[in-house]
Amino acid sequence: MSIKVRTVERKGRTFLEQLYLVEVIKGMTVTLGHFFRNLLDNSRLYVRHYPEVEPEITARWRGRHRLTRHEDGSVKCVACFMCQTNCPSNCIMIEAGERHDGRSEKMPTRFDIDLLECIYCGYCVEACPMDAIRMDTGIYSVTSYSRDSMVLGLEELLETPGAFDEEEYKKGGG
């Protein structure tokens, strides 16, 4: 493969440009123009008034995790550790135990996700053979006053409902 070399013409070498002063004034005109226009009429501003106005989240958005359930309410996760194995930041901690609800034979007894370490890559969701872990809660703002409360446990993960209906989620590629 041969490499194409393109010479880019350099700009900014004329006398007026080298003076800077003219260019500064030109730049400030643009800035001040925007400033006064927005000051007099802010309805056209390209700014979201977050947090008063919340953004619209699509079904593909990777928000906070949750664990899903079958229709009969039983936990979908079978504690296969695929998500933990695949997690690049090593922030999922599972312990498995015997299962007695008639589905499969194994389930998690502990399922912790440390959200401070999570990079929201979604690899856990991709790895799961059971569609048991999803990031479709629509929760994008994860904040807290303590480190401990940033570690989600099994119960919390199971409690949170999904924010989208099934069809929309599937359409999003889930």
Binding site: V78, A79, C80, M82, S104, E105, K106, P129, M130
Partner: peptide, 9 residues
């Protein structure tokens, strides 16, 4: 093929 819950996997 229940590899997800199979200890041998």
């Amino acid at each position: 093929v229940d590899c997800p819950v199979c200890d041998q996997a």
